[in-house]
């Protein structure tokens, strides 16, 4: 599973990171973001690519578990 840290980055950068990572077509990714816009955008992109996304929030940071 690939771990990606997109904290502190504004859109579209978190989605760019997700897109670059997903080019390797792994089965699972975990991405940490720290703003709701990034959470929504990465989720939308991952779902569009056929992944399932579950989100957990802790102290304003969102951990997105992305799986096929």
């Amino acid at each position: 599973m690939a771990l990606l840290d997109a904290r502190g980055l504004a859109c579209p950068e978190p989605v760019m990171i997700a897109r670059r990572a997903m080019a390797s077509k792994e089965k699972a990714y975990q991405i940490v973001v720290d703003n709701p816009t990034a959470k929504e955008n990465v989720t939308r992109y991952a779902e569009h690519q056929g992944y399932r996304v579950s989100v957990t929030e802790k102290n304003g940071e969102f951990t997105l578990d992305i799986t096929k």
Binding site: C11, P12, V15, M16, R19, R44, Y45, H48
Partner: peptide, 11 residues
Amino acid sequence: GGVRDIVLFKD
């Protein structure tokens, strides 16, 4: 962002 997201992510 509209045009950008279409080009980058087909969104």
